[in-house]
Amino acid sequence: MIRVKGLTKRYGHITVLDDVSFGVPDGEAVALWGPNGAGKTTIVRCILGFLGYEGEIEVNGVDARRRPKAVRQMVGHVPQELDFYDDLTIAETLELSRRLRAVPGSRVGEMLELVDLGAHRTKKVRELSGGMKQKLGIALALLADPPVLLLDEPTSSLDVASREHMIEVLEALETEGRSIILTTHDLDEVGMLVSRVLAMEDGKVIQECAPSELAERLGLRSWLHLIVGQDQQEAAVELLAAHGFRAHTNSAGILVEVSAQRKGKALHTLQESGFEIVDLEVWR
């Protein structure tokens, strides 16, 4: 259970989190979704006690400001920047973490197996690829089998195969009654892993909904690639611009920026004015 209430973070005059409130019950995974700079990672760091903040954060009823150690005891964290000790090997890194968390030594081997790093256990962190570091990060986060997981872009560095494996791992975790916060900018990942999405922009939560509703609720923009008659291209672009669309020609046709709910409107505008649309594609 994570409860965030009125969370605000300012650096001087710059407000990076503005009165954010949400909750994550046990057994639920919630995504913080948004572009870079929206404040997702800042929330994670506030929960971990890396940053001072205004507002309240509680993890399983424990105040994060007053009892940061107790909170961190309950939290597994996959950081966005995978900064581990370069000179330590994978096994040494896990061993250090194990000792700091007072976890039995057998867990190290289990985690290595889980993230498929057993063969690389004596490699130093500095020799690892981004994907391997991310696996190490996940292994570290799961080492103590914590009730709360903060996964900060946990799959961004993985290749396609590892990523699917990791998503399976993470999906399995959710069912064990944990509270999970996942930050991502990838909508597909959101769809697979979480039941609820908090969309963030400029330090605020701008939407809260199921993953499937997200695109529409946010008015996500995409591009329509329209093929019209060669000689009609210029006129079509002018018409669209006059109706408030951003549009331009490219080699094969016209690109029109549309919001999720207005794809048809662009087509309708053109067809009303007599343009023949030969073909169309939606580009994200």
Binding site: A91, E95, L96, R98, A102, V103, G105, V108, E110
Partner: peptide, 14 residues
């Protein structure tokens, strides 16, 4: 010394 080599077989008290 490098610690942690072979700890996966060794169960240390928490």
């Amino acid at each position: 010394r490098r610690p942690g080599s072979g700890t996966d077989s060794k169960v240390l008290p928490a």
